[in-house]
Design a binder for these strands. Sequence first.
DNA 1: ATTTACTTTCCGCTTGTCGGAAAAGTGTGG
DNA 2: CCACACTTTTCCGACAAGCGGAAAGTAAAT
Lengths: 254, 254
Amino acid sequence: MSPARSTEGAPISSIGRGIAVLACFTPRAHALTLSELSQKSKLPMSSTHRVVAELTTGGFLVRGKDKRYRIGTRMWSIAQLAPVSDQLRERALPTLARLYEETGENITLAVLDRGQALYVDRLVGEKSIPSASRTGGHLPLHTTGVGKVLLAYLDKEKIDAYLSRPLQRATPHSITDPDKLREELTEVRQRGYAVVRQELTPGNGSVAVPIMRRGRCIAAVGIVAHINKLYVDQLVEILNKAAESIGHELEETH
Amino acid sequence: MSPARSTEGAPISSIGRGIAVLACFTPRAHALTLSELSQKSKLPMSSTHRVVAELTTGGFLVRGKDKRYRIGTRMWSIAQLAPVSDQLRERALPTLARLYEETGENITLAVLDRGQALYVDRLVGEKSIPSASRTGGHLPLHTTGVGKVLLAYLDKEKIDAYLSRPLQRATPHSITDPDKLREELTEVRQRGYAVVRQELTPGNGSVAVPIMRRGRCIAAVGIVAHINKLYVDQLVEILNKAAESIGHELEETH
DNA sequence: ATTTACTTTCCGCTTGTCGGAAAAGTGTGG
DNA sequence: CCACACTTTTCCGACAAGCGGAAAGTAAAT
């Protein structure tokens, strides 16, 4: 989010500062010193110190022996009450487990969140190909399998809005022409699944299908594999069964 | 956490109020109105309104069409950077998936957190017996399999501290006598696993083993099943392999 | 012992935040 | 359509929480 001092007009609130500090943490920086937090949040050192102290008292941050701060279990526990976790992730998990055991590949579950694919969960084993996704992380819609599915089932206006902004190229295979992507999305809707080949990561491919609920796509489930092992027909069949199973699980009143 | 107005002495800070509002959410109340949040946090309505507005702006809360607030994906995403999630849960997940597929039972992974067992993840399928645990939730140490393991491997002083407080009885089978529990913990350490039979939930039993790292128990992994299907020797063998696999996965530099 | 970098504390000042009251909005029953 | 009850939002004068720069403290390296 926008740094504290560079915010024009309205000053940033105390709670906003707390969130700004928490937002400093990233996959590459999950342990930060006070100075680093001050620099990243652009808050003065004494302000940062006070905010960090409050967050630590509340269990949202914890200070390690190395004097670095990390996200605390209190925040994590409360966050598990987010619908994306306790209504979707936890219910989908057995099916994802089965998918993983069945294919041995990289399994992903994602939802649309702020114009991107938010990875709700993923299973990646030793034998799976390394991939760019991470639970809790976001990736673009146009270069990921689950992302293409989520994009394809959006309202036309929202698709237009997404395509009106420059599409970032992740590899030479990334589709960045809006017209070509629009065609691709039509195909996704028609055949009910998306395929991606080296559009996000060289060598990687993925297949994904929608999880539907009352006619709306609420999530996407996908498999990432090396392009040489991307047996699309086979994977689509497995994924459709999984999607149906997850969809059924979500209908249950727990 | 303690309600705003009942705090003696030091007044509660703005960030503390934000955390107090977020702490209102529970498994049974994951969607709350503004009035409910005000009542639960004991903050005046206009104060609650302001705090909630700030949290919503920052993505930590989201207001649904039903006018109820829920934990937002922004908070969830950041929370996934907690070590308990990205260092432990995500790495353990493939092994938990394998355990689930192998046994079809209720799989749990827990760590010690604030004197209780914090459930880092669990897999429970349609055919599994219903259990009391929930990812992100806490349960006592003395009435759960994973809890007994976590307790058994604590420093003597910490075990004494835990046993010095009244042990809550969840069922008639709960062990609440400190001396009996101490004996039990000695057995857990000796044989390397814990067994629980109907001590938390009637009909349910569980077996759990420690996940060790450099001689310290950092987590516990367990299986919950109906007491008639609690084949201890068999489950212990499977669990020990899983624990070793997870321990190995945690050693990897990712 | 000194230097450097980081962290913690201090303190005068400012304005962000306070909460009660009023106004506005919403849903329901007659 | 109106009245009522409840919830939510806005207002606003008061005040103390929070501000950030400076000083002090701490730890590590030389």
